[in-house]
């Protein structure tokens, strides 16, 4: 197990967006979180990645250094514990180059190598070696996301699909144990979607577990090992893609939204 969500509840004022949701994500698997619009998927994500403090429940990450209670950690510490994420509306550093984006992602490791800034100014320390290593890691992910030739372009100048890939590359540069992707296939054309699927499978093969919010059922059904379905802030189904697809509650939740195609 990589992530254990127990009775997660999130209230905004009087509105309960997520109601006692429990599920597990397993190590080395791709877990998909699906559900109609407004089901509370992104809220669950924001709780896991520390952007919201849950009103109740427990979030346990089984990371490299043992168990971590995510609900107690500050946002940046969650990332350090090994959870990386992307955003529904892409959040890059648009005025920095693609390469710089990937180096910022390795901030903590590099910062430690500089002796927290002081050594770096004086030109001492292990920094050059650490930087070379960071560049290698950046190049690896640039290669994997087919962005190597755009490395010196500003991130804001990339086309949409490339920005999506860059965001994933940037998240991977933090070397996470769990990668949380919020609608990575949104706005991609079919070919780009296929490439994305391949990239995610490659990431899984390298040992990083993935938690995925996605509306594109083609992608979800093809690559997920495990699907969790939310509706109106509650979990209504949990199982393999085939099981979920056959679940009556899931079908009615989607049909209720009038979105037959997506459930198919």
């Amino acid at each position: 197990m990589i992530l254990d969500v127990e009775e997660l509840t999130m209230r905004f004022g009087g509105l309960t967006a997520v109601h006692a949701v429990s599920f597990q994500a397993w190590g080395g698997e791709i877990t998909a979180l699906i559900g109609p619009n407004g089901a509370g998927k992104t809220t669950v994500f924001n709780c896991i990645t520390g952007f919201y403090r849950p009103s109740g429940g427990k979030l346990t990450l089984f990371g490299r250094n043992g168990e971590v209670a995510l609900q107690k950690l500050a946002g940046h510490r969650i990332a350090r514990a090994g959870v990386a994420r992307t955003f529904q509306n892409i959040r890059l550093f648009p005025g920095m180059t693609v390469l710089e984006n990937l180096l910022v992602a390795q901030h903590n490791r590099l910062m430690a190598a500089t002796g927290w800034g002081i050594g770096a100014v004086l030109g001492l320390s292990r920094y050059p070696a650490a930087e070379a290593e960071a560049l290698e890691r950046a190049k690896h992910w640039l290669n994997a996301t087919q962005l190597l030739d755009r490395a010196d372009d500003p991130a804001g100048a990339l086309p949409y699909g490339a920005q999506r890939r860059l965001e994933i590359a940037r998240a991977m540069c933090t070397e996470p144990v769990l990668l949380c992707l919020d609608e990575p296939a949104a706005g991609l054309n079919p070919r780009e979607s296929d490439e994305l699927s391949a990239l995610l499978l490659q990431i899984r093969a390298q040992g990083t577990s993935i938690l995925l919010i996605e509306h594109d059922m083609g992608v979800v059904m093809k690559i997920s090992d495990h699907v969790v379905v939310l509706d109106h802030g509650r979990k209504i189904a949990d199982g393999t893609p085939a099981e979920v697809r056959a679940d009556a509650k899931v079908i009615s939740a989607y049909l209720g939204e009038g979105d037959e195609d997506e459930a198919a």
């Binding site: 940046h76 990332a79 350090r80 992602a105 903590n108």
Partner: peptide, 22 residues
């Protein structure tokens, strides 16, 4: 250096910085 790059990243997008563990 990382510190200066983190400053610029902060200028560009604070939320993304947080998500990267800064």
């Amino acid at each position: 250096q990382p510190l200066g790059r983190a400053w610029e990243a902060l200028r560009e997008d604070e939320i993304a910085c947080r998500a990267l563990g800064i």
